[in-house]
Amino acid sequence: MTIDRTTSPATNVGWLNGAGHRTALNLFMLVVLAHWAEHLTQAFQIYVLGRPAPQSRGVLGQFFPWLISSEWLHYGYALVMVVGLFLLRKGFVGRARTWWTVAFAIQFWHHIEHLLLFVQAQTGTPFFGKAVPTSILQLFVTRVELHLFYNTVVFLPMVVAVYLHLRPNRAELAQAVCGCVDKAAVPVPA
């Protein structure tokens, strides 16, 4: 992981990390926010409405209860996250790239954990001598807390990265390869 504030902007980043970076980033953030809305709804149902945990299924789970216990859903979201973090990484520069990479690294491990759960669920073979599919860190922490922890520690560097990306210093703006910040509106020193 390096921070390079001196090199000139890369030019071959493609549409996704160039002209389309802001659109793609907004879409990705909407997916992330929707996922968080599910978790916060679930927390509200448990702690404020006092519902039993099995009946606190968030928004989608209210209408499609089978989704909550579907490893496809959990693995699918973990996969979308790791792919999104990877694909959009080149559009970040300077400090924002560092924080985004931190989020990507943590999410990569989170994805591995979900992959382990997914394989166990699909093959019907729980690992580690457990009765149900179990991930590695789940051997030490219960799943709800672990999942919430992972999501938070991935989300934190993401938000910092987006902040620094949309509030760059002039050196970072000079390196920017995307249109997230309108260079024409800000005089950039040569």
């Binding site: 953030m29 989300f155 938000v159 987006v162 902040y163 949309l166 509030r167 997230c180 910040v181 309108d182």
Partner: peptide, 19 residues
């Protein structure tokens, strides 16, 4: 997470700027 969500929403709703 709730604080971060509010921060992200504020970021997405406000105009980018140079610091």
């Amino acid at each position: 997470a709730a604080v971060l969500i509010l921060a992200l929403l504020a970021l997405l709703f406000t105009r980018p700027a140079v610091r």
